[in-house]
Amino acid sequence: MALATRTARSPSLIGFLWRSTVGKKAVMAATGLIMLGYLVAHMIGNLKIFFGPGEFDSYAHWLRTIGEPVLHYEWFLWILRVVLVAAVVLHGVAAYQLSRRDLAARPDKYRRTRARTSYATRTMRWGGVILLLFLIWHLLDLTTLDANPNAQHGHPYANIVASFDRWYVALFYIVAMLALGLHIRHGFWSAAQTLGANSPRRDRVLKATANGLAALLTLGFVAVPIGVLTGIVS
């Protein structure tokens, strides 16, 4: 047996993990946390908008010059994009595959049900879908600018204002941010559990942190569209 174990061709770690529910979930958790990390930074960056066009635009420019002269212009951004895309794809695909399996594992429902779990927990899947749609729109809106008629490259400040001046866009952003908040509220603790970082002692702390992060990100992100709508940012 031991011998067989050794001689049996052993797949790459990721490849191996991907084959089991526990492993695939770990991939989800890891990619989720990567995205989470990005979002914290992204949110902080976004808040610079309250210091006016100059500072925000130069920040946006700086984003593209990170790592120079070692890296070429925008390289860092591109590396980041590759990582993020990989994360989103792995995360999304894993989410899809696991969800399919989970639904199949519990074909019929009970006549009477008592959900004793939090709303955040129950809305992870839909929250995820909303986030995916948001992301697509968001990139078209503020990165490629395709969905943002009166916008021009190099002037993110103006672009944001232009975008959120459309109340329905602002509203969509706000809704999406709430979804994000919920997703993270369960997601962060869940990731800790999935990655085996949870324990009787840490459980409370992790739950609190999750709530904190969720609130922080939601508020931080929502501040921008609100700012534009209320005219603080214009």
């Binding site: 089991s20 529910t21 526990v22 695939k24 979930k25 696991l98 399996r101 989970d102 639904l103 199949a104 594992a105 519990r106 004793r116 779990t117 927990t121 992870m124 369960h186 603790w189 869940s190 559990q193 999935t194």
Partner: peptide, 13 residues
């Protein structure tokens, strides 16, 4: 997994 149980989404039920 082989027995057809679902995965865990840390629901806690």
């Amino acid at each position: 997994d082989d027995q057809g149980f679902g995965g865990c989404t840390n629901t806690g039920e």
